[in-house]
Amino acid sequence: MKEDLQLFDYWPYDNRPKIEWPNGARVAFWVAPNIEFYEIDPPLNPDRKPWPRSNPYVTGYSIRDYGNRVGHMRQMRLLDKYNIRGSISLSAALCDHHPEIIEMCLDRDWEFFSHGIYNTRYTYGLSEDQEREMILDAFSTIQEHTGKPPAGYLAPALSHSPHTLDLFAEVGGIYTCDLFHDDQPTPVNVRNGSKFVSVPYSLEMNDTIAYVVNKIEPRYYGKIMRENFDRLYEEGADSGTVMCIPTHNYQISCPHRIRAFEETLEYITGHSDVWITTGREIAEYYIENYYDSSREDISRKSGEAS
């Protein structure tokens, strides 16, 4: 194990080359619904228990199923209302289990990025070949069911190996949501040398982190999302920023919580100069317009030869 995987270089937030989003927008705003499948009886990974009790863990399994049975339609309806195309973090096996959901998202031209096969199958302990097989399986499953290969990756249940991003870049991916080091896209160092970037996907704004880990109250979650936006919008006047709200239908779409989400979408989309977009579009736009200049600036500031 190493002190640092060297996935990204130190690159100070001040004095970076200015990012200009399309139409002069200050903030690139995207919503990333995680549409996941958790197995009721997964194999027991030696490094991480899928469920805290013996199977069947009824409440844990069933609330996640609630997300697909009940919650999905509620969130999709809100995103329709505010003209937001979701960027789905997809458990690829959901294409097999619940193709109806995939169809509805395809009809709306939503993006699908890879979130592994199941959220109960972790990267931990897999050999590099096994991890490649899993990544390729998800990649081709999504391509087959949606007509397009995924551009982005969020490792299943945020479980990684030292090679996760290298492997995803090697199968043709262009962005990752696994890094939380910045509020702007940044180049990521991958071993094949491809133009591969991190698109900010906020852990802090993630509903499951807010509700399950930090245990915050629904209306307070709405408040901090709006405050997060306010600051990124202010700073975006100088150089474009990215705001992401990662969601889960078993959290955000519960009857006592959906109001906080709706009020936040109403607030954010009520601003001019917001680019309502998807993860893929942010990655592509950044790579096309800013990747090379960012690399040069990083080299300059790290005192290395470019």
Partner: peptide, 25 residues
């Protein structure tokens, strides 16, 4: 590496991964 069963998915098919109830939105 892990046992090959970690990359096998016997219940990866339409509906739920058990037989207790039908998938229904």
């Amino acid at each position: 590496s892990l046992d090959k069963t970690f990359l096998e998915y016997p219940r990866r098919k339409y509906g739920m991964d058990h037989d207790r109830y039908d998938w229904s939105m």
